[in-house]
Design a protein around this nucleic acid. Structure first.
Lengths: 340, 340
DNA sequence: ACAAAATATGTAATCGATTGCAAATCGGAG
DNA sequence: CTCCGATTTGCAATCGATTACATATTTTGT
């Protein structure tokens, strides 16, 4: 193993002290032109790479951020990660990834990463944490460096980034209404999930505003997954008085719903209009292409990372934005149609 | 900010030296029963958490592994990450994520993470690296701690984990043959990709073995994406003598292919049988459910992490497995049917 | 030309854990 | 009771960078 060279080596070659080398590297303005050149040259000659472990120890910064997902295997998050990573790497930060399940199952606390200097902050994409875990988070001395994205915790006061869930839901319902639909069902996310409640609530409210009937059985409990969408379809089929349109709380739900319907020879949108939420990549390629509410996952990631970095780099300042709510938009494709 | 307690604090409370505390924590057998108890008590009282930055510096280990993806936004990798993370966290290691594009675009070398003590090893899921980047990797002193998964570099000698690409391709072709198909097309991955070449090559070979005709235009160039699948469908449609079955090098290709066909009112599998490769989650829910070659992404991740950890923890030993080739299996669903 | 201010560099302490070596303690044999 | 080896513990150096403070050097003003 070739030993990599250290600041000392560079200092020796450049005939200056390690302090000067350090300064040259992190704050070039304070050293003279000539030493700056000598040091740069020495760095090149020695092939010096900074040792992050040493710097991290000395500066009390890990220069990395932990992203906590509910479930690593869920592709919904990949674009968000891309957004986060872009911002972080631009600031010289690295991105650590773990799943809340894995961390908690192993008996660790979520804040361990912060406590033991592995991460300077964390972005949590999981609103389904146990209340006692949340309480611990809130009371932790590092709670200032915790931020939620996509989902959030009702009643807690963490900074967060989310999309316009209510507005998106309203837009969806209005779209179906404009197409002539008057009997509209909703397939929800999982019980206890904040997005589920927000969207369901907005759905009910909007139907009320439009003076539409809403039978209790038109709210079908699901959980964002394909499988739940299939089950919801079964439920829809058995209804006496079938709604002519269905607003699903996620694209996956909508796809499962449509897939299952097709097994029973129902046609979308001819027999029923179906909408999703999220506008994942596949929505466009699905058959039929899915009408959905688009949320910009890249921007969610970027915004979250920016907000967190602000808090890490200037922990004592007041930060203008506490909850960033990003716009959504209606994407009309072929899974919804006028009521004929 | 509450300062977290250090080894010193624990030592003071337990009335022993820091050396003893350290030993108690990392190697309990060498300390006496009584001090072990005193130290554990002191740890509890002080709420001590080890400072990883300090340990990393002293031990010259970062206790983390970098996973390099070609593209963070690609959901294909999420399950693999889950597998990697499981193994790593079990060994007290963390998982850093970055994309090769981002790293290289920012002017850094891939080995920087290794050189500057940010990571003890790396798993690369990107076989599309530039030859000069590969050469640099090979000649780096840390090349022993680099491992490829899913894809690999032809001609280079890095340890790797992959699935049975040839066997899978053969199985796919045989399946179509058994259904009576004699004119079979192939939609390939991106030019230059090792998986693309391996699968194409195996495809051609197997057709030869079965004495099947293969017109050059029956090999349609693609790139694993949905969009490429759509284009491939266009190409297929314009053929005079259309193959009755199509083997796509990825599920995404197959989905795009089918989606596009349906826009032109072709029915799958009635008008043409279509197969994918990978068996991603969505394959099952697609309409029609996709016949595919399944690769176990969780196991790919776990195997890769295990192999890398072996090499990190015992760098000088000979390691039994250099290239792990994991089994694939045929999953028959409804996108393929007998030629009638 | 000289004092004061501004700029550039060096010295050495520090971050917090690990570990080689030395010292202390213990147990048992003679 | 003494001595020897084994077991336990402590001392202090170390990993490699950063930075407060001291010192040296240059510039500026009069």
């Amino acid at each position: 193993m070739v030993k990599t060279s250290t600041l000392q080596d560079v200092a020796r070659v450049a005939k200056v002290s390690t302090a000067t080398v350090s300064r040259t590297l992190s704050n070039p303005d304070v050293v003279s032109e000539s030493t700056r050149r000598r040091v740069s040259e020495a760095v090149k000659v020695t092939g010096y790479r900074i040792n992050r472990a040493a710097r991290n120890l000395r500066t009390q910064r890990s220069h990395s951020v932990l992203v906590l997902l509910p479930d690593l295997a869920n592709p919904f998050f990949s674009t968000i990660l891309e957004g986060i990573s872009r911002i972080l790497s631009r600031q010289g930060y690295s991105m650590l990834i773990a799943s809340t399940k894995q961390v908690l199952d192993s008996g660790d606390r979520l804040t361990d990463y912060l406590d033991d200097a592995r991460a300077d902050g964390m972005i949590i994409l999981d609103g389904g944490l146990d209340p006692d875990v949340v309480e611990m988070l809130e009371n932790a001395p590092q709670s200032k460096r915790v931020l939620f994205a996509c989902e959030w915790i009702d009643g807690a006061n963490f900074p967060s980034v989310r999309c316009q869930n209510r507005q998106g839901t309203r837009t969806a319902v209005d779209h179906l209404y404009d197409l002539g639909h008057r009997k509209i069902a909703h397939v929800t996310g999982p019980e206890g999930n904040v997005l589920m409640h927000t969207r369901k609530d907005a759905f009910v409210t909007e139907l009320g505003k439009l003076n539409l009937e809403l039978k209790p059985e038109w709210i079908i409990a699901g959980d964002f997954s394909l499988a739940a969408g299939c089950q919801a379809a079964q439920a829809w089929i058995t209804l006496d008085d079938r709604p002519t349109a269905v607003f699903c709380a996620s694209d996956q739900l909508a796809m499962g719903f449509i897939a299952e319907l097709s097994r029973y020879s129902f046609k979308v949108p001819n027999d029923v209009s179906v909408m999703g939420f999220d506008d994942i990549d596949l929505a466009e390629q699905f058959i039929p292409p899915l009408t959905s509410i688009r949320q910009d996952r890249l921007m969610i990631g970027e915004t979250a990372a920016k907000m967190l970095m602000e808090r890490i780099l200037a922990p004592n300042e007041e930060h203008s934005v506490h909850a960033a709510v990003l716009p959504v938009s209606l994407v009309v494709r072929e899974s919804t149609a006028s009521l004929n």
